[in-house]
Design a protein around this nucleic acid. Sequence first.
DNA 1: TCGTAATATTACAAGTATGTGTCAGAAATG
DNA 2: CATTTCTGACACATACTTGTAATATTACGA
Lengths: 229, 229
Amino acid sequence: MSAPKLLLVEDDSALAELLKYRFESEGYDVRVTADGEEAMMLAAEDTPDLVILDWMIEGVSGIEVCRRLRREKETAHVPIIMLTAREAEDDRVRGLETGADDYVTKPFSPRELLARVSAVLRRVRPALAGETIEVGDLKLDPVAHRVERRGRQLQIGPTEYRLIKFFMEHPRRVFSRGQLLDAVWGTGSEIEERTVDVHIRRLRKAITVDNARDPIRTVRSAGYALEPV
Amino acid sequence: MSAPKLLLVEDDSALAELLKYRFESEGYDVRVTADGEEAMMLAAEDTPDLVILDWMIEGVSGIEVCRRLRREKETAHVPIIMLTAREAEDDRVRGLETGADDYVTKPFSPRELLARVSAVLRRVRPALAGETIEVGDLKLDPVAHRVERRGRQLQIGPTEYRLIKFFMEHPRRVFSRGQLLDAVWGTGSEIEERTVDVHIRRLRKAITVDNARDPIRTVRSAGYALEPV
DNA sequence: TCGTAATATTACAAGTATGTGTCAGAAATG
DNA sequence: CATTTCTGACACATACTTGTAATATTACGA
């Protein structure tokens, strides 16, 4: 999973350090600058997933940076959270109208900002906010109904999809054929247990990608399990 | 352009009236309830575009309503703005973590709430705010009611327009025929699900341009999705 | 090493889902 | 009011999926 890339534009270096540390420990990839011009350059050279922007920075004002980010095609749709020391409603409204997605009023706790960032990312790029399931080199997006391995889309049928989804929801655990029939086919299905073998085979075939090793473990006389590769 | 549908869950009837009036005069279509259970029912029968939810309501708590909305497939992705009288950071963070997209602390001005609503809608469903949407090589202008692909105007019928607009507002996501009927034809339409196939076919035909590849993905036994080309 | 039980593989026919052309009535257009 | 466009439904064609059975292979204990 690629870490969400944040661009933090903040000229209070103590605060910037604190936030950088906190966000990085939460798995974000953070770049920091105190300067509006530099912010534009950084954003241009590697488009971030989200920008945290202090309203009051040296040089170009925060609101101006916001406007410029919106104007560039690359960054037009990158969500922006503004940090503002002001309580004035006018400023908040103006920020939103300029194209900020959200703002947080100082003082705030890192925890609150984290929650906001994650809420915004969840909206914009669900895949970044953990709505996908990942097990080893497999990634499953339930909303798009897609499974990929090592970045490669897998071609997978309905039953195999349900099967691997179930496995990915319970990695490492061994399931008997009976359990799999209940979970994937539905309780009380009248299907031969041997049939599970066939679908396991089909699943294995479907998830085979550049001869990577088979992540489905056969447990003799017990069932099957998915092992993170 | 169809008016964005808001669901307001607020038990202070004076405030509810005020907001309803203000939002309606801005062109929104507003439904109001003071009750959590009823809110769920209203949301189920006609999915709103955005929910404004008071944290403290009678019966089920706001946060519980939020959680339940997120749990239902139909409403899982509807943005939620919470209204809270509390300043406590814990509550705000909890709100965001439960799945709210934003919150506004009372007291607030209708103007600020309007700005927030419009910011959230712009982020989530640009077409509702009158902005053009681009998905891959498709471009849709909701004001002009036009769709183009690779700069070429598409000749497209009313139903197909609504269909592709819906798809472009939710790219990549897979929708069942039932969901599409609800979203595009209107809730409770008595139309054959197979008819969706026919319109998908017509849409595919309409958006075919210099034999570019078909951006509509068929997900067998699940539905259809629009993939950016 | 061998026999047995368990699992893997293959082929296939029946079942199910989707694609497509067409039509009659409805709705929009002028 | 005449004409055109749109809509929903249906039927047939096609593509994909699925469960089973038959056969091959493998693992394990005696």
